[in-house]
Nucleic acid binder design. Structure first.
Lengths: 97, 97
DNA sequence: TTAATATATGAATAAATGTTCATACATTGA
DNA sequence: TCAATGTATGAACATTTATTCATATATTAA
């Protein structure tokens, strides 16, 4: 191994794994510039409320999204700019293929 | 969905999925600044020749690595700078957590 | 308080995925 | 030509993972 130790490489793989699912990428995509509640997300990405909720839990655990509760609703948004950056770079790569 | 259509988002998920495995990330890591043959890679990432070869096939299919044959050996290297960029950004993200 | 709405979650199921093992293929050197 | 070496690959297996379904929880409105 080079400069990076194994643990860090494993963490990196874990991070990319989160981005490596189409439902989650779709969720990140609709959250790029605004927060949305679960049912809005489910509607936009064309998935069930349950599926989206499960995936949001994973995104939350990985600290890629944050949330706030308002009455009945839970609004999700991207944690920070890094998430957007990684998304955008992946986007660029696809464009150039 | 926003600006991006579903197909592109699926392609992006596929791309990140490739980075989302520790063996593949380790392989990318050792290829960051030089080409290596299969058995050197296997040695460096501490995996079997077969496992590495299988993963190299996946990396090759996704055009993340290229290769050249020289006699008995096959030397692999990263396809382009984009691969390194994505790797580095993931690296940064881990650092900042 | 009761019904309706929004969300979360556990269990079950099906599908995808990574590794190992055995083996094939190709190239080199003797 | 034959043995050794490096690589690729198919099958089998075990594990992970995403979705669905049913249901629980919580909040709001009537």
């Amino acid at each position: 191994m080079e400069i990076l130790n194994e643990d860090k490489l494993i963490d990196m793989a874990e991070l990319f794994k989160i981005f490596g699912d189409s439902t989650r990428v779709k969720i990140i995509n609709v959250l790029l510039d605004k927060e949305l509640c679960v049912c809005e997300i489910a509607d936009l990405v064309n998935a069930s409320q349950s599926a989206v909720s499960h995936q949001l839990r994973i995104l939350k655990q990985s600290k890629l999204v944050k949330y706030r509760k308002d009455g009945n609703c839970t609004y999700y948004s991207l944690s920070d700019d890094h998430v957007k950056k990684i998304f955008m770079l992946g986007c660029e790569h696809i464009d150039e293929m």
